[in-house]
Simulated scan of single mutants.
Amino acid sequence: MTDAELLKQCHTVLPGHRPRSPAEMFAAMAAWCEANDVAHDVYGDGELIQQFEQKVADILGFESAVFCITGTMTQVTALRLACEDRGSTLAALHPTSHILVHERSNYQLLGHFHALMAGDRHRPFTSADLAAIPDKLGAVALEIPMREIGGQAPSWDELEAIKQHCRERGAHLHMDGARLWEAATAYGRTPKEIAAGFDSVYVSLYKGIGGLGGAMLAGSRKFTARAAEWFRREGGNVIHRSPYVIAAAMQFDERLAAMPSYFRRTEWLYEVLRDFPSIRVNPAQPQANMLHLHLPVSCERALEIRNDVARDHKTWLFGRAFHGALPDTSVIELYVGDNLLDMADADVRQALALLASAL
């Protein structure tokens, strides 16, 4: 039985939001289009998409934002343009950057820029880590929060120090804000306050938002116009962006408004996890509504446990698992969304007890 088939049989699911079937999603989109008299854009020219682009730009405090079909295309294009502007092909990235870990060396094979790794892979990099790089940097990319290390983010003072360092150094500071909305409550700041001092910001339209896909790149009007031209050259000029924009726009405000509730539920979850000492949590305190759980079993065994619990108890504990640094250890990821928010406290405790018992 495949993972998808196991998951479909479960009545209790811990991570994420409840997924909508295609029929449910398309019906909701159709109803929203009917209620709002929505028309298709044509190659990005249309009232809905342009209003939504400007809405995202305003929330982030930028002049402009432009839609792109994927975050993968968005970020390497933004960093290449930034490096061109600053006269250096060198971009500083954290060792766990999505660009390095998940994008099949696209930045390198396509000649976008040269990457330098900054900082330790288990912690967010600091201004001191950047200062230790002697080369002229064209750009610095900072993910907020950092998914591959459990949703960690720099402290507010350190974030301000990084902004100042890049400003004084003359390096373009770009934010991988795929989960920026999730970090705002932990910082106690608005997305605009977090983004202030960055030269460009990428945000996802499907991760925490729950859309079908797509991304936005925010920056100066000149910068986003150049990026839009390169998106066309790179094959991103789909004739209708409207399905992706509608799927995000119709629930955008609701999702942003729910982020504080997700974070409070994450804080509660941390307290519950104290009762299960075999499960180690990273980071030590929540910095977004996501976290990693470190388990004293191999990755293969962790997945067996997940599948056994799903089959026997109709409870889906987690999706993603990967090898820990030590032998016979593993790491799993939890994103706290609608599922955990709406689940009864006793059911959450029972699910964690099933995991701990199997460990």
Rank of each mutant, 00 (worst) to 15 (best):
G151K: 11
G151V: 07
Q152L: 13
A153C: 13
P154N: 12
W156C: 08
W156H: 11
D157Y: 01
D157E: 15
E158T: 00
E158H: 01
L159Q: 10
E160T: 13
A161S: 11
A161K: 10
Q164M: 07
Q164W: 07
H165T: 05
H165R: 10
H165K: 07
H165V: 05
C166N: 04
R167I: 03
R169D: 06
H172C: 12
H174Q: 08
A178I: 06
A178Q: 12
R179L: 14
R179W: 11
W181S: 14
A183F: 13
A184L: 03
A186L: 05
A186I: 09
A186Q: 09
R189P: 08
T190Y: 14
I194F: 09
I194M: 06
A195G: 05
A196Y: 12
G197Y: 08
F198A: 08
D199M: 03
V201Y: 13
V203R: 04
V203N: 06
V203D: 06
L205I: 01
L205H: 01
L205E: 04
Y206H: 09
K207W: 13
G208M: 09
I209W: 02
G211Q: 08
L212H: 03
G213I: 09
G214N: 03
G214K: 05
M216L: 12
S220R: 04
F223G: 04
A227N: 04
A227Y: 08
A228K: 12
E229M: 03
W230L: 00
F231C: 03
F231S: 02
F231Y: 15
R232V: 11
R232I: 01
E234F: 15
I239W: 02
H240I: 01
H240R: 03
A247H: 05
M250G: 02
